[in-house]
Structures are given as structure tokens and as C-alpha cells.
Design a protein around this nucleic acid. Structure first.
Lengths: 179, 179
DNA sequence: TCCGATTAATCAAAGGTTTGATCATTGCTC
DNA sequence: GAGCAATGATCAAACCTTTGATTAATCGGA
């Protein structure tokens, strides 16, 4: 690392968080360093967990992480309008529309116009889709459980509660949702 | 909601978490419900925070969230090889390569072959890029600070510590990284 | 010094996401 | 009943991400 890069030795994806907070703290006095560390940490940890789940469970199962999210919602809440799937999975209608193209092509979901409203498209799992998501969810849960063992039961509950508190704040209320 | 959708009344993106845990808990006895709730919560909160930051700050600034992440790394750690930017921002080399196409086109980053290793591409901020990221970061921090006010100082520290503990577990050690 | 293994960036193909637009349908007011 | 506003799904364009492949360059052991 001596020639060319000028990056502090040993700086990695994870250690960059401390480095970033320290660098900004030195250069900009009015920055909220706690908030900065919180968002950097939150995003980086989540990103890592999701990449792990997607690469070790979901892609081998034949779908992507976003695909899993839609299948999961349909599995638990049953056939529904596409706009509802979008809401429950936290995606836009356009994203669901595109995703369902793939899932439908792969025989995992059904898609049809509603008879009570000609605008609405209803989607649901096929038999194959249900079988696949059940197996996929078991593998997914096994892996997420492995992640969760890094924390005690009480720590898990605390973490969930704190994240929930973030969702109860005014910023969450102001945050726009996808259309 | 009476015709056709059969979804429990009032189910939303956020309330779906409790619903999902309850549904799976009833149907599959061997599932780790705590882990399930943890990952669902983690991903949904993070997703919401990031979408808010991207739509309210970053896109109006002329770049995307991933673009911001690369600009941020270059800003704090200076010019570097593309592979280093990939590591520090948690992306693959291919993703950085593609992203830098856009940022370079927009005059925010420089890109050149290293003279000490003909394989390596070095990237750095342009003057315009540095000006832009400084303003962008201020707006970003203001917004992330707004999010963080939902928690007390101690809660923030606890949250960061617990997330950090997730990163110290064996699953994180086993998790593959992007190439 | 030579050569096979490794490395770095980019490519291609496939998939996913966003925004605003579009088109058809529905809802609601007058 | 008519007409405008709102709604839902999809489209188009732009951007981003992944994987494996490719090409060129570098490394390291014999």
C-alpha cells in the first residue's frame, strides 16, 4: 500500500465508519456525528445481512431478494391486488409490475385482471410458488437465525424496539412513500 | 376492502411485520421468530431511511444514493484505486465501474490509469465534485439528524453498539463479500 | 527468466428501481 | 348523466447491481 493509494493502512468497509466519523468531526464542527454514525452503521450492517441472505439462500433458490420479498408477502397474506403487494413489500407499483413479470414467467405467481375493477391486477402464488417459498423461507430463516445468534435474546428485543422507535419519530411520518 | 382483496383491514408496510411474525409463528413451530422479526425490522427501517435520504437530498443534488456513497468515500479518504472505493463503499468493482461512468460524465470524479500498475484505475473528486459533496453532505446530515432525534443519545449509542455486535458474530465473518 | 496463477477493470446479459407519462377505468360532484 | 379528478398498471428512459467472462497486467515460484 505504499505507492499510490495513500489510504490509511487496513481501512476496510467496516472500519471506514469510525474513520469517516473522525474525519468529518475534525473538519466540520456542526455535524451531528452520532446521527452520521448511526445511519452509516445501519445501512452497512443491513446491506451486509441482505447480501448474505440473497447470495446464500435466495439466488440459489432461483429468485432475487426483491423477488423473495414479494413471494413472502403473497405467501403470508394471500392473493391480493398488485398495489397492495407494493405497499406491503415497500416497493413502488412499477417495481412490483416489473418483478411480477419475472416471477410469473418462472411459474411462481399468478396474475389476472380483477372482475370488480378493471384497473386492478390481482396476483397470488401458484402451487409451485407456494412450495418454493416454503422451502426458501425455511432456508432463509435458518440463515437469519445464524445472524441473530450474535445477540442475546434481550439484545435482539432491544434492537427491534429501538428500530421501532425510529419508525415512530416525526421523520418517519414525513417520509414519502413510493408510488 | 370488502371485495376481492381479503387482506386484513389496515395492514401496512410497517404493521406487516407483526402480522408476518404471528402468521408464521402459527404455521411453523420451528421458526426462529425473533430472528425473523429482527431482519424484517432491520431491512424495512433501513430501506425507509435510505429512500427518504435519496429522494429528499440526493436526487435533488443530482446524484443517486449509490453515487453519494462513492462520492462520500472519495471525499473522506481522497483519490484511490477503484477497487479500494469498491471495498470502502461495499460495492463490487463492476458496480463502481458503472457508477463512475455516470459520475465522471457529470464532472464529479476524475478517472485515470495508475502509472505504477497498468491494471489499476484511480478515481478522485473533481473540484466541482468536492464542492457538491460538501453541500450534499451537509443536507444529508441535517436529514439523518432529523431521523436520529427519534432516539435519545443513549439509545443511539445502544443501537449502534448492537448493530456493531451483529458485525462481530460468526455469520458476519462467514459472509461473502462482493467481488 | 519463464510460465502459470492471480489480479483489476470492464463487458455482456439479466434483473431490479425510480420518475414521470400514458391509457383505461372508476369515483364523485354538479 | 356528464365531466373532471383520481386511481391502477404499465411503459420508457435512465440508472444501478450481480455474475461470469474477458483481456491485460502483475506476481511469485521453480
Amino acid at each position: 500500500m505504499s505507492h499510490g493509494t495513500d489510504i490509511p493502512d487496513g481501512l476496510t468497509f467496516w472500519s471506514f465508519v469510525d474513520y469517516a466519523v473522525e474525519r468529518v468531526g475534525r473538519a466540520m464542527p456542526s455535524v451531528d456525528l452520532d446521527a452520521m454514525r448511526l445511519v452509516l452503521t445501519l445501512h452497512r450492517v443491513t446491506s451486509m445481512v441482505v447480501y448474505d441472505l440473497e447470495s446464500s439462500v435466495h439466488r440459489p433458490s432461483g429468485w432475487t431478494w426483491p423477488g423473495f420479498r414479494v413471494l413472502f408477502v403473497l405467501w403470508l397474506a394471500g392473493p391480493m391486488e398488485a398495489k397492495t403487494a407494493a405497499e406491503l413489500s415497500g416497493m413502488s407499483r412499477a417495481a412490483v409490475s416489473s418483478l411480477v413479470n419475472t416471477l410469473h414467467r418462472d411459474g411462481l405467481v399468478t396474475r389476472e385482471r380483477a372482475d370488480y375493477d378493471r384497473r386492478a391486477v390481482r396476483i397470488g402464488l401458484t402451487g409451485a410458488g407456494r412450495d418454493a417459498i416454503e422451502r426458501g423461507f425455511v432456508a432463509h430463516n435458518r440463515r437469519e437465525s445464524a445472524w441473530a445468534t450474535a445477540l442475546t435474546g434481550e439484545e435482539r428485543a432491544t434492537l427491534v424496539a429501538l428500530l421501532g422507535k425510529l419508525m415512530e419519530g416525526s421523520s418517519a411520518a414525513e417520509a414519502k412513500r413510493r408510488s
